[in-house]
Design a protein around this nucleic acid. Sequence first.
DNA 1: TTGTAGGCGTTATCAA
DNA 2: TTGATAACGCCTACAA
Lengths: 342, 342
Amino acid sequence: MSATISDIARLAETSTASVSLYLNDRNTNRVGVKVKGRIDEAVEKLNYRPHLFARSLSKHASNTVGMIFPTLRPLFINPYTNGILAGIQSVASEHHFNLLFFPTIGETSKEVTRFQVENSMGCDGYILFSTRFCRKEDIESNIKQIKRTKQAFVTINIPYQEEDINQVIIPGLEDAYGVDYLVKKGHKYIMLMAGRKDGINTSKIVDSYKKYIEAANLRFKEEYILYADYNSNKAKQLFSEYFSKYPEVTAICSMSDLMALGVYSALYDMKLSVGQDVSVIGRNNSDFSALMHPPLTTVDLHMFEAGVTVQRLLIEAIRGEAQGKKEYVESDVIERSSVSTN
Amino acid sequence: MSATISDIARLAETSTASVSLYLNDRNTNRVGVKVKGRIDEAVEKLNYRPHLFARSLSKHASNTVGMIFPTLRPLFINPYTNGILAGIQSVASEHHFNLLFFPTIGETSKEVTRFQVENSMGCDGYILFSTRFCRKEDIESNIKQIKRTKQAFVTINIPYQEEDINQVIIPGLEDAYGVDYLVKKGHKYIMLMAGRKDGINTSKIVDSYKKYIEAANLRFKEEYILYADYNSNKAKQLFSEYFSKYPEVTAICSMSDLMALGVYSALYDMKLSVGQDVSVIGRNNSDFSALMHPPLTTVDLHMFEAGVTVQRLLIEAIRGEAQGKKEYVESDVIERSSVSTN
DNA sequence: TTGTAGGCGTTATCAA
DNA sequence: TTGATAACGCCTACAA
């Protein structure tokens, strides 16, 4: 068994109170210098480490953020998600917060959320981190569950909700900005490479695609929308197939850089040149996008910044200084050379 | 304040003992049916959630894995690291383990480790996850610190250590397998694109490069080794510069796919064809590597599998069934079309 | 400046 | 079947 504060007190011939006092504030003057010395010795000798959970229990604060992750797949596999996590961890670290990830147990988003919420009492605050796996109908259920706890929480990765919950919103998630960009570059026949047909943001993306097309007095064509499930191979295959059907298309807006890579590959096989013959815009500003040939013009969603914003907002919420607060993280276009003026 | 077990007991007109008993085993026959019913009602009504930390304290087990991460940069930004984390989380989840990440506080690897070890008492076991940021001299210090706690732990991402610690070892991390592959394909002048000159594995990689070169009776040339810090732009620039100096080179082994992408880009600018004029092999089997042009032949380190192995070994260690155990995760070459026979 | 004692929310022992 | 009650390790009045 590891040493406890009483062991230290005994060895240092003092009380647990003094030990606790000193260990929590080395500069306290409520403990004498000689006693301090003896405590130091004892700590060193017994290799004492304060018990995280005992301390949390006693202080009514754990300095821990609970990560509610309604997903069935393992965490940490999605670069987009990881970007946000990096931002969260960065700020959490500055403020001495731990990050606690729970098992993803259950068959549905709802079940996973329930399990995690029920088994996470004791954290100072929670981040409800939705994923592509969530359907629209899941979201409300998840929010309701976490709301019942009456503890501080922030949502990320879901569209604006009317409810008075703290949210970090990334408008670029639900918008095909790239289409607007292509329109402004003079393109008239623009394909959309979307993700999962039933995905959390897909219908809004399609709406915005339509909006941009119609605002420019162009013709909206359902057939120009391809759903490749964020899979680059599928994107390649779908694009090959449909591009030969619709040779009038001069540009394609992809909702991920990886799918854009699939498009590049398809065009390469067709001996067409990206940028010159066909314009392509991606999304995410992935590490590889700058070195593709030609370098990919892409929409940067600023995931890291979003993560930073989430954790900052959560800290406010924990302090009771935020409720129903909505923060927006804007996206922008990184112009490289895969798009030409038409 | 949230409801506690006593609140439940009071409302259900029973004792905390019965509540605890029932809540931890719905099928227990040490609690009467009627009492069970009343407890259910009370739990529902008061929206009770058991306190994670109180439970851990009492049970002498937290079902939590502490992640010791000696790094200065934010976590979750390195795809390689994230692959391992995904494997860890996947197994942890199956076994109902939480993952706890601590702040990365300190100026050096040693300081960060110290902070995390000192402030993490209470976890059932620990994973010491070294990063590129660790120098060789840091590793021993970090191990010593975590060893002092006498708790179960497993190391990942460091070379084999003589000590009787549990380790998951990825030989491919310290080996330039790609060079061997290129040699066998008949190449005689092979460049090595390495990472950081002072990196944890770099010197071993260089040794293995030399070993493969000399085993094939080829001439080892210091100048063929480039250090691009795992940065694709730097790789591009360095390669451009040195390849024109040493035009006899027919193949390059890159220690990451991203750096290989830099090489592709450089060759493209030189109007040379990858695969035909110059062979390239990468490492990591990154998501984008299969769709590069030409598809990149690469060494797959099996990060996810490594993570799975780490967490499995840790669970053994927690049960007291593993000490000084070394597990190996082997790599293999994914053959695509960026390497030709010379 | 130091020490005593009660409480944080659980679980577990033991007697009823 | 039930219910007191003593841990678990720490913090913090409060008293001395």
